[in-house]
Design a protein around this nucleic acid. Structure first.
Lengths: 356, 356
DNA sequence: AGTACTGTAGCATACGTATGCAAATCTGAT
DNA sequence: ATCAGATTTGCATACGTATGCTACAGTACT
């Protein structure tokens, strides 16, 4: 290897006429260095284009300033949003994101490589990830935040140390159901997400509860698995039999957009005249004029900030690492994909903006 | 710090009754260890739940197995695709992606932190990144690949070492223009991307050339800056004056979708009856039934594989690090947002699938 | 039995930075 | 000028792994 041999703190020390320790301290905020020494060091460093080696620093301090982000896919527009915002937030704190994609098949051998990188924290935003991963991280002393999903306390005997940041999905389900009920809908169907997802479970519970309280019951339930193709198939199933629903709640906007397309262009169903559609998440495309999807928005901003807060907190060496579960509020974004209470056909109220 | 003190190769060595070197070699493919020793080590490692410390390895080998991915945003659906595919491909080669978001304002102080992580390579998929960054990386001996953009050879006196992977954008522009000309369009407008983008420049050149060869000229040109809002504004501008175009080529699908929405829902323009729309990239939403956007597809798969190939090649210590510029072919995906040659109104041919 | 060779094991050190500790310097008050 | 106290400096070592080198054991051949 004839690499140009990177410039090290020793080179800088020599040039500045100080010790290597001095160089290190000059780059460590709050360290004991005189202003003069620091200035000499900074100058020399600048002349040599020196940059502290983050890897060596990690080895020494045992803090990598790297956070792992585990995803199963970026198909759902929600996750690019989360990825970008989380990454930017971390960046302002001098932290960086390393990406890990779960391979879908439960094994996730690739994910255990994650342990090798001395990560300062891990954010799991993938449903298909074995809870074993979270457990392994905890055992290794790495703070874990489950993003947009909570660990199943029930099934897991071992006290699970993973924190979580979720929306108030139960309430979100209620909001969706209440809105449709108020709109005079009689036959409300649900296209579910993955059965093993806490988000789906909570949203569905809120819906079912609210219907029951109104003396109603779920008209029909089909599985969409958070997948566009499955959701399209579910939409077909809903209209393929007699007595179709007059409204459908879809467990995510990602699916809801596919449902709208399928209903409109394959099934000649008018939205919302023939059928109302309500989703969850408020992804960017939901506000596009072609869809104008009424949806229960998750505040990605709040969720990301909460995640950051939990992580920074637990990264403190003095931290007690107690599990924290943050629940963020939702809000209904009314657009035109669902009939309103007052008007059956003439629809005008729209909400296009909103924090993201 | 009362961290549980991670288990190291020394612990494993002790338990297996061998030296630390033996442990290291047992985990190094192709190293000189007997099968017996390796087995003892593997067993001990397994019992202690040992995982080699990638950071320490990096310090020793000077190879981090981390690739930096520099993005300006994930808004455009193209980039989530790229991010996921690149990350997965790298993952299968034992490499990982670290994310960097440029802050838009040219300074990018955050990006130079990138140099600190001893990255094995950098992929720049951000238009707004100072070419200085690429230069700094090259100087540090880090292979750089510009993704979906090429460095301006012209303006840059310093021989730029950054490789690039792009589509054949000039040909892509020609394909779009030829298709519209064949469809009998007379007044073809162009909504441009950012002026400083090589991708925009090349696509536009292909379009203008082709029009000229057909004895035509660009009916109108408006700037869209690869931004949905700007593109919507551009669409309004196109129809706000007399003699509107009968076709518009939009420099990216990301913008084209906004253009379609604006034309249809704000301007009451029927697509393609009143105006044809053609885009570039073939992002996922372009194939959604609401849009059915005719577009010149970039083969994200090919581009990612090429990027990987260049990177792996240049990461070889023996590599000569000569710049490589890969140009990937495009293909026209005909859907229904633009009139075809044979039929003015009755449109039926569709292409929905295709490699991605 | 002696020689040459091959394959393994362990020792020692390097990678670049951070930091505890003791020594050195400075500050200001007497 | 002296000294206590505060500040700053440099030395030495630790962080966990990889690897050049030497030593040794085993094999095959003369």
């Amino acid at each position: 290897m004839k690499e140009p041999r990177a410039v090290t703190s020793i080179d800088v020390a020599r040039r500045a006429g100080v010790s290597q320790s001095a160089v290190s301290r000059a780059f460590t905020p709050g360290a004991a260095v005189s202003a003069l020494t620091r200035e000499k060091v900074i100058r020399a460093a600048h002349e040599l284009a020196y940059r502290p080696n983050a890897i060596a620093r990690t080895l020494s301090t045992r803090r990598s300033r790297i956070v792992g982000l585990v995803l199963s896919s970026l198909d759902n527009q929600l996750y690019p949003l989360v990825t970008e915002q989380l990454s930017r937030e971390l960046q302002t704190h001098g932290l960086h994101v390393m990406l890990f994609f779960s391979d879908g098949r439960g094994v996730d051998s690739a994910l255990t490589e994650l342990l090798a990188y001395q990560l300062d924290g891990v954010v799991i935003a993938s449903a298909t990830v074995s809870s074993k991963l979270a457990e392994e991280c905890s055992r290794a002393g790495i703070p874990v935040v489950m993003f947009n999903r909570s660990a199943d306390h029930s099934a897991n005997a071992t006290s699970d140390n993973a924190s979580s940041v979720t929306s108030d999905n139960c309430e979100a389900g209620r909001m969706a159901a209440r809105f449709l009920i108020a709109g005079g809908h009689q036959r409300i169907a649900y296209i579910a997400g993955r059965e093993d997802s806490s988000t789906n479970r909570d949203r569905e519970r809120g819906i079912v509860e609210t219907l029951r309280d109104a003396g109603m019951t779920l008209h029909r339930r089909v599985l969409g698995n958070y997948d566009r193709a499955d959701a399209a198939e579910a939409a077909r199933a809903l209209v393929s039999v007699g007595d179709p629903p007059d409204a459908v709640i879809v467990a995510s906007d990602h699916m809801a957009l596919a449902v709208m397309d399928t209903l409109r262009f394959e099934c000649a169903v008018r939205i919302p005249e023939d059928m109302s559609v309500v989703g969850f998440d408020d992804v960017p495309a939901s506000s596009w004029p072609s869809y104008q999807l009424t949806t229960v928005a998750q505040s990605v901003g709040s969720m990301v900030r909460s995640t950051l807060s939990v992580l920074l907190d637990q990264m403190e060496p003095s931290s007690e690492r107690v599990r924290r579960d943050v629940v963020v509020g939702c809000r209904l974004v009314v657009r035109t994909s669902a009939r309103l209470a007052l008007q059956a056909t003439a629809i005008e109220q729209r909400v296009m903006g909103g924090e993201r």
